[in-house]
Simulated assay, not measured.
Amino acid sequence: MESGANIIVAIALEDLRRFHKEVIADTKKELEAQIAEDKGERYLSIKQVCEMLDVDPSTLWRWRKRGYLVPAEVGRRPRYRLSDVRRMLNNGRAAQ
C-alpha cells in the first residue's frame, strides 16, 4: 500500500463496540498493574545502589548524566528506584 492512500474499511457496530471494550479492559489492567508496582516501590540511596551494583559513586554520577540510570529526587536527595536497578541488572538498562 502507498502512504496517503484512501482506504475504506467496513466494520459492524457490534464488532467496534467489542473492540472498544477490549482496549479499555486491557489498558485498565496495565494501569492497575503499574499503580500496584508504584505503590510497592522502594527507593535506594546512592550508597545502597553502589553496593548492589558494585560500582563507585562517580559511575552512578556518569550514568545519571548519560541517562543510563536516572534517580528520582526524594526530599532533594537522589534516590534510585529498586525496580530500575533490578531492570538494569536483568536487561542492561533502566527505564526513564
Rank of each mutant, 00 (worst) to 15 (best):
residue 55 V to N: 00
residue 32 E to W: 04
residue 56 D to C: 00
residue 69 L to M: 03
residue 88 M to S: 03
residue 37 E to Q: 12
residue 53 L to W: 02
residue 40 G to H: 11
residue 38 D to S: 04
residue 22 E to P: 02
residue 3 S to D: 12
residue 77 R to N: 11
residue 51 E to W: 00
residue 62 R to A: 09
residue 41 E to K: 05
residue 73 E to C: 14
residue 86 R to V: 13
residue 92 G to E: 06
residue 94 A to H: 02
residue 64 R to H: 06
residue 87 R to D: 09
residue 93 R to K: 11
residue 68 Y to N: 06
residue 69 L to A: 02
residue 20 H to D: 14
residue 37 E to V: 13
residue 72 A to I: 07
residue 74 V to L: 08
residue 60 L to P: 00
residue 32 E to N: 08
residue 72 A to P: 03
residue 33 A to F: 09
residue 48 Q to A: 03
residue 68 Y to D: 08
residue 83 S to H: 08
residue 61 W to V: 06
residue 41 E to P: 03
residue 91 N to R: 14
residue 38 D to I: 04
residue 80 Y to V: 00
residue 4 G to E: 01
residue 33 A to Y: 11
residue 58 S to P: 04
residue 45 S to M: 06
residue 92 G to C: 06
residue 32 E to A: 10
residue 70 V to P: 01
residue 25 A to R: 15
residue 50 C to V: 01
residue 48 Q to C: 00
residue 5 A to D: 11
residue 48 Q to G: 01
residue 31 L to W: 10
residue 85 V to G: 01
residue 51 E to Q: 02
residue 6 N to F: 14
residue 34 Q to D: 14
residue 52 M to Q: 05
residue 20 H to V: 12
residue 69 L to C: 01
residue 82 L to M: 06
residue 8 I to K: 11
residue 42 R to S: 08
residue 1 M to D: 12
residue 91 N to Y: 15
residue 76 R to C: 11
residue 19 F to W: 15
residue 82 L to D: 05
residue 57 P to I: 01
residue 81 R to I: 06
residue 88 M to K: 10
residue 13 L to N: 15
residue 32 E to V: 07
residue 3 S to C: 09
residue 40 G to S: 13
residue 62 R to L: 05
residue 70 V to C: 02
residue 14 E to Y: 12
residue 35 I to S: 03
residue 36 A to N: 08
residue 32 E to C: 03
residue 14 E to M: 09
residue 55 V to W: 00
residue 82 L to C: 05
residue 75 G to Q: 04
residue 92 G to N: 08
residue 23 V to P: 09
residue 81 R to M: 10
residue 10 A to C: 12
residue 85 V to Q: 02
residue 19 F to P: 11
residue 17 R to P: 05
residue 61 W to F: 08
residue 14 E to K: 11
residue 15 D to S: 12
residue 88 M to W: 07
residue 77 R to E: 15
residue 24 I to N: 10
residue 88 M to I: 02
residue 72 A to G: 10
residue 6 N to S: 13
residue 44 L to E: 00
residue 79 R to A: 08
residue 13 L to Y: 13
residue 10 A to F: 12
residue 93 R to Y: 09
residue 26 D to N: 15
residue 20 H to N: 15
residue 60 L to D: 00
residue 41 E to G: 04
residue 68 Y to V: 10
residue 57 P to L: 01
residue 79 R to I: 07
residue 36 A to I: 06
residue 41 E to A: 06
residue 55 V to T: 00
residue 8 I to L: 09
residue 25 A to L: 15
residue 60 L to Q: 00
residue 32 E to R: 10
residue 84 D to G: 02
residue 26 D to V: 14
residue 34 Q to S: 14
residue 24 I to C: 10
residue 93 R to Q: 07
residue 56 D to K: 01
residue 89 L to Y: 04
residue 93 R to F: 09
residue 90 N to E: 15
residue 78 P to N: 03
residue 16 L to G: 14
residue 76 R to V: 09
residue 16 L to W: 13
residue 34 Q to N: 15
residue 74 V to A: 04
residue 37 E to F: 12
residue 24 I to D: 13
residue 33 A to D: 08
residue 82 L to Q: 10
residue 6 N to G: 11
residue 11 I to M: 12
residue 58 S to L: 06
residue 64 R to N: 08
residue 57 P to S: 02
residue 59 T to H: 01
residue 20 H to E: 15
residue 2 E to M: 08
